[in-house]
C-alpha cells in the first residue's frame, strides 16, 4: 500500500511540485530499503506487484516495469546480503545499483521496442540534483523504516 501511495504521488503531486523537474523516486527508494531488509526470496514480490501496478496504471506496454522492478529488487537483495550487511551505508551504496539496473532494463526494452529516447537525453535526467535529492530522501526514509521495523510496526523481521 505504501508503494502504491508513492506511485500515485509520483504521478500526481510530484508532477507539479518538483525542483527543476527533479523529484525523489520514492518507489525505487522504498524497493531498495526492502531489498536491504529482506533476502531475495522474500523481497521479489514487492518489486513484482508494484511493477505490475505501474504497468497497468501508466504503462503502454505490460511487463516493462514488472520485469524491471523484480530484477532490480532481487539484485539489490542479493548484493545487500552477500556484500554489504544491513548497515546504514548499504542502502546509500545500493541505491545507485538499483537506479542503474531499473533504468538500464527499461531503456533496453524500450530500445528494442523502438520507443526509446536518445541515450544521451536519457542519461541527462540523472544529474547531480537527482542523486542529491534521492540519496537525501533515502537516508531519511531508511532511518524511519528501520525505526518502524525495530518497533515491529512495518516490514517485520
Amino acid at each position: 500500500m505504501i508503494l502504491l501511495f508513492e506511485l500515485i504521488l509520483q504521478a500526481t503531486f510530484f508532477q507539479f511540485m518538483s525542483i527543476n523537474g527533479y523529484y525523489p523516486d520514492l518507489v525505487l527508494i522504498t524497493l531498495v530499503i526492502i531489498g536491504v531488509f529482506y533476502d531475495k526470496e522474500a523481497s521479489w514480490k514487492y518489486g513484482f506487484i508494484i511493477g505490475v501496478l505501474r504497468d497497468i496504471l501508466y504503462g503502454r506496454v505490460f511487463g516493462v516495469y514488472a520485469l524491471g522492478y523484480t530484477v532490480t529488487i532481487i539484485a539489490v537483495s542479493w548484493i545487500g546480503k552477500n556484500i554489504f550487511k544491513e548497515s546504514f551505508a548499504s542502502p546509500l551504496l545500493l541505491f545507485p545499483v538499483g537506479t542503474v539496473t531499473i533504468n538500464s532494463l527499461v531503456y533496453i526494452i524500450h530500445y528494442l521496442l523502438r520507443m526509446a529516447v536518445p541515450v544521451e537525453e536519457y542519461i541527462a535526467n540523472f544529474g547531480l540534483m537527482y542523486w542529491m535529492l534521492n540519496l537525501g530522501v533515502l537516508a531519511i526514509m531508511y532511518s524511519l523504516f528501520r525505526t518502524l521495523r525495530q518497533k515491529g510496526i512495518l516490514l517485520k523481521m
Binding site: 503502454r60 506496454v61 505490460f62 511487463g63 514488472a66 520485469l67 523484480t70 526494452i109 521496442l113
Partner: peptide, 8 residues
C-alpha cells in the same frame, strides 16, 4: 513478463 511485453 517477456511474453506480456511481446504481446502488448
Amino acid at each position: 513478463l517477456v511474453l506480456g511485453i511481446g504481446l502488448t
